[in-house]
Simulated scan of single mutants.
Amino acid sequence: MRNIIFFVGTGLLLVAAAFAVDEKPKQPRAAEAKGPNTKSSTTAAPRRKGAANEPAEPDEAAGRQPSIRVDTNLVLINVTVTDPLNRFVTGLEAEHFKLFEEKAEQRIATFASEDAPLSVGLVFDASGSMGAKLQKARLAAAQFFKTANPDDEFFLVQFNDKPELIHPFTTNTEEIQNRLTFTQAKGRTALLDGIYMALHQMKKARNTRKAVLVLSDGGDNSSRYTESEIKNLVREADVQIYAIGIFEPASARSRSAEELAGPGLLNEIAEQTGGRHFPVENLNDLPDVAAKIGIELRNQYVIGYVPNNTTRDGKYRRVQVKINQPRGLPPLRPFWRQGYYAPAQ
């Protein structure tokens, strides 16, 4: 068995080759005498250099897209695994996972743990309430970009009263950081419209792995689209959404109803896609949290299966991932996309 390695905070990047699973599932092997390696130091991944659009009309979103990438009948799911200390766990094998669709267990057909190229959209809050937080938010974006690889591509959507595509897809992260330098905080918060624009822009992505990072300090008070519309769109999109919510400390909750609803909204949207929401109260924590998200995207398993239910009915199917607990390790927790729409044709 390959060594199982933990990553603390912005831990070291590990890349494993993809491999297909045998017809018969492997039996768990006894733990090796060496035991798991634990990485307690933090090492960033290699650093690399790196037109206003209105949101499309609602009927454009009606064309349903699969929420998980489907190649013929193969469904692929990205899975992140963490331990009780929220450290990433790599080095697991296919035998450590069980996968269910609508409560029926599925046979794992392919399994990989690799750092594949990413297409990422940064959705940046430039509303008036972000004034004192802008500099730390820029630093957070810079730390996230440090985890980029040469084949990654990025775009920038900025929002206040309405969303705006500041920079389309580029492999040069410095271009995006330069545009953020001129960001000014003003206006209201069209968070939902910003997410919609990012998902629409993601249709132009050249990489199969896609993610959106939202940096915002509150709820929505200026969007055309409703929570229900965005939640439905998120379920249909093959995009992981990560969110950093920049909130006031609990002792200073003088926020509007929309802002109070912000954490719950970001959490629900993110978890539905297999991403995560990281609430931040201390601005000094922003860069480390952003870097952690970048490293998490580099330490995911990709599990493929051919559904037992081959009916092409276009219906939403719920997916569940469980861990076959390895010997000698603390309880592990998986994060994954919670479902997908079956093909209609």
Score class of each variant (00 low, 15 high):
6 F>C: 06
7 F>C: 08
13 L>H: 00
15 V>Q: 11
17 A>K: 12
18 A>F: 02
20 A>C: 02
21 V>Y: 01
25 P>M: 08
28 P>S: 08
28 P>R: 09
34 K>W: 07
34 K>T: 10
34 K>S: 11
36 P>R: 07
36 P>G: 09
37 N>C: 01
40 S>P: 00
41 S>H: 03
45 A>F: 06
48 R>Y: 10
52 A>S: 14
55 P>K: 09
55 P>N: 10
56 A>Q: 14
62 A>R: 14
62 A>I: 04
67 S>L: 03
69 R>V: 06
70 V>C: 05
71 D>A: 09
81 V>A: 04
82 T>M: 04
84 P>I: 01
85 L>E: 07
89 V>N: 05
90 T>V: 13
91 G>T: 02
95 E>S: 10
98 K>Y: 04
98 K>V: 03
98 K>E: 14
99 L>S: 05
99 L>R: 06
101 E>I: 03
102 E>V: 03
105 E>Y: 05
111 F>W: 01
112 A>R: 10
116 A>W: 01
116 A>T: 13
118 L>W: 00
119 S>A: 13
119 S>T: 04
121 G>Q: 02
121 G>F: 04
121 G>T: 12
122 L>Q: 03
122 L>R: 02
123 V>A: 06
124 F>W: 12
126 A>Q: 12
131 G>A: 13
132 A>Y: 13
133 K>G: 13
134 L>W: 13
136 K>T: 08
140 A>P: 06
148 A>K: 04
148 A>C: 04
149 N>C: 02
154 F>T: 07
154 F>W: 15
156 L>Q: 14
162 K>F: 15
165 L>V: 13
166 I>Y: 07
167 H>C: 08
169 F>N: 09
169 F>T: 12
170 T>I: 06
176 I>N: 09
180 L>A: 14
181 T>M: 15
181 T>F: 13
182 F>G: 07
184 Q>G: 12
189 T>P: 14
195 I>W: 05
196 Y>S: 15
203 K>G: 15
204 K>H: 13
210 K>T: 00
212 V>S: 06
221 N>R: 12
221 N>G: 13
225 Y>F: 15
226 T>N: 02
226 T>I: 09
229 E>P: 01
230 I>R: 01
232 N>S: 14
238 D>L: 02
238 D>N: 15
240 Q>C: 00
241 I>Y: 03
244 I>P: 02
245 G>W: 01
246 I>S: 10
246 I>E: 11
247 F>A: 06
247 F>S: 08
255 R>S: 11
255 R>P: 01
260 L>T: 03
260 L>P: 00
272 Q>I: 05
272 Q>G: 00
276 R>Q: 10
280 V>A: 12
280 V>Q: 05
280 V>W: 09
281 E>N: 12
287 P>A: 01
287 P>K: 05
287 P>N: 04
293 I>L: 00
298 R>S: 05
299 N>W: 00
302 V>M: 10
309 N>H: 02
311 T>Y: 02
312 R>W: 07
315 K>I: 00
315 K>V: 06
315 K>D: 09
318 R>N: 10
326 P>M: 14
326 P>D: 14
331 P>C: 02
337 R>G: 07
340 Y>P: 03
340 Y>F: 15
341 Y>G: 00
